[in-house]
């Protein structure tokens, strides 16, 4: 399959999934008990202006499918609706917070990649004692929820030792980096442990391949063999897991942002749920799902660069 045809097909599939999810997210409103209008306004009730605004925003006077199409049209024009609680455009609310979440997820992804791959490789190559220790730590890391780690990190490093700030996402630049260090760590532990496991298994498998014998018998340097022939060939499972992980980190951020009181998309979502700010809930969930789907699509394309035997689109 040519690159163009592949991209066209892939984009088509992507759009279809997004269309369905957008429909589901839109439909959520109608799963709620009571009329949509009452649900959105909630126990707050509403002034006549609010009722008019909500009716217009959700096109409540139109038949169901017309409403959906109109809502989708607004969405595509970047109009994500209006938050009743914040009295602000949802797109502005999201734009103001997406940076924090992005920084948090990127930092966590970096930690996961570095720690997971090196720990897994070390365990596989050293074996014995190192392997035992790494595997045990990984098993515990995998069993520890991010909020428990977050609470532990705050207790020890922020409250106890005072090395890090307890809450908030800092004022930009280096300050933000310091503020995000503990949250990123909390977010990364379980995934790093999982990646270490996968890396270990993959390196063990690749190290036993015949072509690694060829490289050894040619007298190539051991370090080079590990990098160029073992790790390089282990990349397919590693990238798969890393991609899936990054996609789930976006959801994991919901929890961690709450522990550390960061003003990202996650804390916005939780507050919106508690305050029944439905336009915000819909928008944030849509953003999460789109990010999740996009990351997966990127990973799919990456495969073909990693392993020349995988043809474009042949892998699901």
């Amino acid at each position: 399959m040519s690159l163009g045809a592949y991209l066209a097909r892939r984009t088509g599939g992507l759009l279809l999934v997004l269309l369905v999810t957008s429909f589901l997210v839109f439909g959520l409103l109608y799963l709620a008990p009571g009329s949509p209008l009452a649900f959105i306004l909630g126990p707050r009730g509403g002034t006549p202006e609010q009722i008019a605004a909500v009716t217009a925003q959700y096109h409540l006077n139109d038949p169901f499918f017309v409403r959906y199409v109109a809502w989708l049209g607004d969405l595509l024009r970047g109009d994500l609706g209006y938050s009743i609680v914040y009295r602000q455009d949802v797109s502005d609310l999201i734009a103001g917070r997406v940076g924090t979440t992005l920084a948090l997820v990127s930092m966590a992804a970096l930690i996961i990649a570095v720690v997971g791959i090196s720990a897994g490789t070390l365990a596989a190559l050293r074996g014995g004692w190192t392997d035992q220790l790494t595997s045990s730590i990984a098993a515990i890391g995998l069993s520890t929820p991010s909020f428990v780690i977050g609470v532990a990190l705050i207790s020890v490093f922020a409250v106890g030792l005072g090395w890090f700030p307890t809450f908030g996402s800092g004022s930009g630049g280096l300050d933000t980096l310091v503020h995000l260090a503990l949250p990123a760590l909390a977010l990364s532990v379980a995934s790093a442990a999982y990646l270490a496991r996968i890396t270990r298994a993959s390196v063990l498998e690749e190290r036993g391949r015949e072509h690694v014998q060829t490289a050894t018998v040619r007298g190539l340097a051991p370090g080079y063999i590990v990098r160029h022939h073992v790790l390089r060939n282990s990349l397919v499972p590693i990238v798969t897991v890393l991609g899936l992980t990054i996609a789930t980190l976006i959801a994991g951020a919901v929890v961690v942002e709450n522990v550390f009181a960061l003003d990202g998309l996650g804390s916005l979502l939780v507050r919106a749920i508690l305050q029944r700010d439905f336009a915000v809930v819909q928008a944030v969930i849509l953003v999460l799902v789109v990010a999740f789907v996009l990351v997966n699509a990127v990973v799919d394309v990456l495969y073909t660069f990693i392993d020349p035997r995988i043809a474009l689109g042949s892998r699901k």
């Binding site: 072509h211 390089r232 035997r309």
Partner: peptide, 25 residues
């Protein structure tokens, strides 16, 4: 010395080239 010996003195040809050449390079 072993690496030097493998590099310069002996060369090995294997039965199954498909398995003995790294497929990703």
């Amino acid at each position: 010395a072993l690496r030097r010996y493998r590099q310069r003195d002996v060369g090995m040809i294997f039965q199954d080239p498909r398995a003995h050449v790294n497929p990703v390079h």
